[in-house]
């Protein structure tokens, strides 16, 4: 691989290497595009596809993203956008978990759905989409429902989990799993014009606080449905949180819920007092 690195150094112009050159390098050294990308980033060379990340994200940070492994639980409204953005950002491995196939009522908002993909497994569509937009990213499709007893298997070596589920009971189980496994969790939930985002670190217990009075059933999304723009917005904020966690930079939504109301166009921060960590347990 030292030879590959040297080859890329010689090819690079202004610290960038083009897609065509990456393809040629993969063929010449009989390796994957992911290996080419890693070898370039290790040399401080940026694949040209990420040149507009530069300034916001340095080459060294791009390497940290490439080494990142993020699980997206639920590949519907939120999950579809999250997977697209994580792949374009350059997160090296995405574990996509969902047992469902696309249905017609998904078409109004789920990015990975299309009439052509009706009946197709959502995780297969995710794999196809990521292979198309960024072949250096590995998408691991898990065509199964999230279950706490499989958390350790699903989340092996995972740095951050994205909660893109649609059931309170499963969200709480996921939050508990992440607490137990010591993994940060970026929670997003939507309904109609409304959404919320919280980032939970192990020991915070914040997701259980959000649903502290929940007893059973769905939320307001059951009545209001979900239009196209709400999942796009909330998933984008979730991905920004994931990016900062992977890079260890910025300030995340820890101990505070971002409450979004697109009808009145209000974004409000609700502080979740650290002393209330046991609420909802």
């Amino acid at each position: 691989m030292a030879e590959l690195g040297q080859y890329l150094v010689e090819l690079a112009q202004d610290g960038l290497i083009t897609w065509t050159e990456q393809l040629a390098a993969a063929e010449r050294f009989d390796c994957t595009l992911a290996e080419v990308e890693e070898a370039a980033l290790v040399q401080g060379i940026l694949p040209a596809r990420y040149q507009r990340n530069r300034q916001a994200i340095s080459s060294a940070q791009q390497l940290a993203l490439f080494k990142g492994r993020v699980a997206v639980v639920g590949c519907g409204g939120l999950g579809g956008y999250a997977i697209e953005e994580l792949a374009r950002l350059g997160v090296g491995t995405i574990v996509a978990i969902d047992p469902d196939v696309f249905e017609e009522h998904n078409l109004n908002r789920q990015l990975l759905s299309s009439p052509y993909r009706l009946g197709q497994a959502k995780v297969d569509a995710a794999a196809a989409r990521v292979a198309e937009i960024n072949p250096a990213v590995a998408l691991v499709p898990v065509d199964a429902a999230y279950a706490p007893e499989r958390a350790e298997l699903f989340f092996r070596n995972v740095n951050v989990v994205v909660d893109a589920l649609d059931s309170v009971a499963t969200r709480l189980a996921l939050a508990d799993s992440c607490e137990n496994l010591g993994i940060p969790l970026v929670h997003g939930a939507i309904g109609g014009w409304f959404g919320q985002i919280v980032t939970q670190f192990p020991g915070d217990g914040t997701i259980r606080q959000l649903y502290g009075r929940w007893v059973a059933g769905k939320g307001l999304e059951q009545r209001l449905g979900n239009p196209s723009f709400t999942p796009a917005l909330v998933a984008s904020i979730q991905v920004a949180e994931v990016c900062k966690i992977l890079l260890g930079t910025g300030k995340v939504l820890r101990h505070r819920k971002l409450s979004i109301n697109l009808l009145d166009m209000e974004f409000e921060e609700i502080v979740l007092d650290r002393q209330d960590a046991a609420v909802g347990q």
Partner: peptide
Amino acid sequence: IALFPVVAGG
């Protein structure tokens, strides 16, 4: 006081 409804869609 502040009252928040259940929001849980994905």
